[in-house]
């Protein structure tokens, strides 16, 4: 269907994530939240922690509607550090001209994967007075990207030469109403062109399985790599934050009780244990094609989670990624989740 490239996206040679999809291998992605300041080293440092351990790392796009270094610059920096980026692109801040321009630019500098989402409303961010753009939504953006790549056409109808060659990703929140529509909404994104999909944090495995059963019934897991979102809760403050301040995250009572039931200096360790257990269970569920580990400001925990969950990189030795000692406070003063709540929006 494609005129050039390897015919499946992921860059001209096919990226690591693209190969994981082609080979049907369990894929691992993680997330890098760019810094607020003009601090390239912050991206490089996080990229070095993840290098070798993950197939690709999302670079978030002004996560939670807070101004950060752009996902484009962050992706370029990660690429230079040897970590394959997934450039997140939201519809919140740019109209169709800006969006298509950024997508073309991503292809031009060799960014092999893009993740297209609607984005948080500005009212949740640090510029609540900003004009929300939302010229189109995530489904329309996925469709636009697919048209650009597979048909070499901009929305205007103008032709694009050479064509971009990224892998196209999308997100879904299995836990949000309307429950009976969520799997079909993913189907809509897949019909529009999504080749992989990352989900909102899975804390409630039963409900996730319920959604995934619908996904399998529609045959969607065979057309799209589904990466289940996971992440460690580091503190009770972080738990309260994701339960009350981040829309769309569902933490069931048993998980809350477990975290509240340990002494405060053990919450982080318990959070890690829950995360590892979740990954292990997800690996056994048919239709789960991989995991997406979101550990914001806590990237150094990712290798440990993967190691303990049996996902250590037999793929490649990890050059830099030393597992973090368990239960230590993270270097950043923020709760675990605010940076990346751009999941499934």
């Amino acid at each position: 269907m494609r005129a050039e490239g390897n015919g499946r996206g992921g860059g001209p040679e096919g990226g690591r994530l693209s190969r994981a999809i082609a080979d049907g291998r369990f894929a691992v992605t993680a997330e890098i939240g760019p810094p607020r300041g003009a601090d390239a080293e912050a991206i490089r440092r996080k990229a070095r922690l993840l290098a070798g351990w993950v197939d690709a790392a999302n670079i978030t796009d002004n996560q939670s509607a807070h101004v950060r270094l752009s996902s484009f610059a962050g992706s370029v920096l990660a690429l230079a550090e040897g970590v394959e980026p997934v450039m997140q692109v939201t519809c919140r801040d740019r109209n169709r001209i800006g969006l298509q321009s950024d997508l073309v630019s991503a292809a031009a500098v060799g960014i092999p994967n893009v993740l297209l989402l609607t984005g948080d409303h500005p009212c949740f961010g640090d510029h609540a007075d900003a004009k929300p753009v939302f010229d189109m939504d995530s489904v329309a953006l996925v469709w636009t990207a697919r048209s650009m790549r597979d048909h070499g056409r901009l929305l205007s109808g103008r032709s694009l030469e050479p064509r971009p060659d990224w892998l196209i990703g999308a997100v879904e929140n299995p836990f949000s109403p309307p429950e009976r529509f969520r799997a079909r909404r993913l189907g809509k994104k897949i019909a529009a062109g999504a080749q992989f999909a990352q989900t909102q944090f899975v804390f409630d495995i039963e409900r996730f399985e319920h959604w995934l059963a619908q996904v399998r019934d529609l045959g969607l897991d065979r057309r799209c790599k589904i990466l289940a979102g996971v992440g460690p809760v580091r503190s009770l403050r972080a738990l309260d934050y994701i339960r009350t301040q981040v829309p769309g995250i569902h933490v069931p009572e048993p998980v809350v009780r477990r975290l509240r039931g340990v002494p405060s200096d053990r919450v982080a360790a318990e959070g890690m244990r829950i995360c590892v257990e979740t990954v292990k269970r997800l690996k056994e569920i048919p239709g789960v094609g991989g995991v997406h580990v979101m550990a914001f400001g806590y990237e150094r925990a990712v290798p440990e989670i993967l190691e303990r969950a049996g996902l250590a990189p037999h793929r490649q030795p990890a050059p830099m990624g030393q597992p973090a000692p368990m239960g230590q406070p993270a270097p950043m003063g923020q709760p675990a989740s605010p940076e990346g709540s751009g999941r499934a929006r």
């Binding site: 409303h121 929300p132 939504d137 489904v139 949000s176 309307p178 829309p247 769309g248 999941r343 499934a344």
Partner: peptide, 20 residues
């Protein structure tokens, strides 16, 4: 509030309320 034309965003609360 986001004028989404292709379905709900992922921020819908468990009881079906708008995030904004």
């Amino acid at each position: 509030p986001k004028q989404l034309r292709n379905g709900p965003c992922g921020g819908v609360s468990p009881d079906g309320m708008c995030e904004v």
